[in-house]
Amino acid sequence: MTKLLSKDKKYKRVAYYPGCALEGTGKAYDTSTRAVGKQLGLKLDEVKNWNCCGAMEVKNIDPKIQTYLSSRVLSNAVNKNKHDVVMAPCNGCYHNLKKAEYDLENDPATKEVVDRLSTKAGHKTYEAGQAETIHALDWIKDAIGEEELSRRVKHSLKGLKVANYYGCMYTRPRHIFPEKDQGPGSESTSEPHFMDDLLATAGAVNVDFPLKTACCGGAHTLSDSDTSTKLVLNIIEAAEAAGAEVIATECPTCHSGLEMHQIRAEKVLGRKTNVVIMYFTQLLGLALGVAPRKLGIHENVSDATDLMIDKRLLWAT
């Protein structure tokens, strides 16, 4: 299926699954993703009447319900939007759709339950292979590519020092991402680099950051806050030690977790850190010449204004 049409053409028009977080605390990620897509001439067609993918919570009630929830989203994208590519910028949604794809193909027991629930709920079942799920990183990387992107950059990020933070759900566990670890050009699950590639093209300097895929404790951000605060503090301090001015994120849960526990670490543990947290789409948008307000930079809790003024990046309007 993927072989027939080259990826750059196939990804120019995709079904877009924002998910609940991008309609709530991660609104700025949604705004900036749409703005970047518009600036690059990529068409996003929101999945019709979508539902929550189950995030990190529903699987603990029962993983098969989570697979059902994700399969309904895929089914709508295929049957209602008539798309065969679904783009999910949220790591949690992306992970769950990928996992649903894997389980529906490989686990007959899951397939049976999901088909039964779909029939009862009165919508078409989703069959493995009908759609391909991609992340916002794959989307820009494959639909535009670095060469084209470098031609579109209007205001270079001028050596802004960035730590790229990918989190857990983008690469783990390996088996649900069969397209990764396929040699040159593909994403790596142990040392992911797509965000590094894109931001370097936009003029940023990627610092040597060892905790790219460390866990921020997002699943227990409220239910076990002290653990999450320790994990986030580790990540932020490692980024600072590596010389980063900004931590670039690609997941609303990681992003709000980093913001929340940065403040919590200050209040509870008395450890103040200065690194700024931004979505990678916000940085990319600035480089492409999108107005800061259209990227929701003022909607981040972590205040990037001073740094952006220092770096003369807010003039990019």
């Binding site: 539902n51 009630i61 227990h220």
Partner: peptide, 17 residues
């Protein structure tokens, strides 16, 4: 937390944080 979250998803299909 899982219960509060799942209850909303199952009842409404979406969550409100």
């Amino acid at each position: 937390f899982d219960e509060v979250f799942s209850e909303q998803v199952i009842k409404r299909g979406k969550i409100e944080e």
